[in-house]
């Protein structure tokens, strides 16, 4: 096979088959995928959860992960945030001609590693190749199906006054790791993306309390946006304490430099939970047992005051409103 992806790899002909059979199947093989029929057939019963997401991250390789790992973790996490146990994923890849085959192989390997860790199978897929300039190296879409255990009812609309807000770890790692690689912004950092599948963490949390009210992964828009979504959906107020929110030194420093507030910076391996006050310490203790919840902390609580708004008690004492992110995060100039 050639060193780079050619338009012919997307022709549907021999090269297309070669690409799937040699580059994807050996790593991702499982009985449902191996059939290579037009669609995958499986049995499932109970309440199902279904989600889809497209991944267009630039650059496609970044410290702590790549677009492949992100595409698996992102969809696994979206299922998990409803309390669903992820079962199957689809994988659809749009490749810009000229992508190095070696790069594609690396990405498939990390798709495999992430799917193995999350214990999900990729059971259907598609590849397309487009002309140079019509995509940026590689775009991936994954959809996922999961099953929700009986008795679980998690929604952003379930927060109640008195509930505690738990954050699973440090914020801003992914956003800053990506930003550090962007053209025109490049800076040295030891930070890595926190990109990770959170389904096992969620399963452990649900074991501690099946009554978790809200779960969400604060991806684009950051912690601030997720908290605002909860406040609006549930028609409650939320108060968080700046001091309690874990932020790595490197993220703090980069945010100072770029003029960002870490509460708006993206995460790919964190979750925010809203739980009943009596369950908070149980859930927190369980989270700390999991590698992705080691730095978990109770950062605030839900109130009936200032409904629809999130207030942060600053380190200095006064409080201020934390609004949703508006526009794109852009660096300041002086």
């Amino acid at each position: 096979m050639n060193d780079t992806i050619l338009l012919a790899h997307g022709s549907g002909g021999k090269l297309s088959h070669d690409l799937v059979e040699r580059k994807f199947l050996p790593s991702l093989a499982n009985p449902l995928l191996n059939k290579l029929d037009d669609s995958a057939i499986f049995e499932a019963s109970g309440r199902l959860s279904f989600t889809t997401d497209s991944y267009v991250v630039n650059p496609i390789f970044f410290p702590g992960g790549d677009i492949g790992k992100l595409a698996v973790c992102g969809t696994v996490n979206d299922l998990s945030m409803n309390g669903a146990k992820p079962l199957y994923l689809s994988l659809s890849v749009i490749i810009e001609e000229g992508l190095l085959i070696a790069e594609l192989e690396r990405i498939v390997q990390s798709i495999k590693a992430a799917a193995d860790e999350a214990q999900v199978d990729i059971i259907t897929g598609d590849t397309k190749v487009v002309n140079q300039g019509q995509a940026d190296k590689l775009f991936i879409n994954t959809s996922g199906i999961g099953i929700i255990p009986a008795g679980i009812d998690i929604s952003g609309a379930n927060a109640k006054a008195g509930d505690r807000v738990i954050l699973s770890g440090t914020i801003g790692d992914h956003g800053i790791a990506i930003m550090s690689q962007r053209e025109g912004l490049r800076f040295e950092t030891l930070l890595e993306s926190d990109c990770a599948p959170l389904n096992k963490l969620v399963a452990q949390m649900l074991k501690a309390s099946p009554n978790i009210h809200c779960l969400r992964d604060p991806t684009r828009g950051g912690l601030a946006t997720t908290l605002n979504e909860f406040a609006k959906q549930s028609n409650v107020g939320i108060v968080v304490e700046e001091d309690k929110i874990p932020v790595k030194e490197g993220v703090k420093a980069a945010c100072e430099l770029l003029g960002f507030d870490p509460v708006y910076v993206a995460n790919e391996g964190k979750l925010v939970a809203v739980v009943r006050p009596g369950d908070a310490s149980k859930v927190l203790a369980q989270m700390k047992q999991n590698r992705y919840g080691r730095d978990a902390a109770i950062i605030g609580e839900v109130t009936n005051d200032h409904t629809g708004r999130v207030i942060m008690k600053t380190k200095l004492g006064p409080s201020r409103i934390i609004d949703m992110l508006s526009g794109e995060l852009l660096p300041r100039i002086c």
Binding site: R309, R320, I321, S326, C334
Partner: peptide, 27 residues
């Protein structure tokens, strides 16, 4: 608003209106 700014003071990360809006002076 920052989503639909009319003037620059609502856009810039150093703009006065953006600061008053974002940090909720009305609070």
């Amino acid at each position: 608003t920052p989503e639909k700014p009319v003037g620059p003071c609502m856009v810039s990360s150093e703009g006065t209106c953006a600061a008053y809006y974002q940090y909720g002076a009305s609070y």
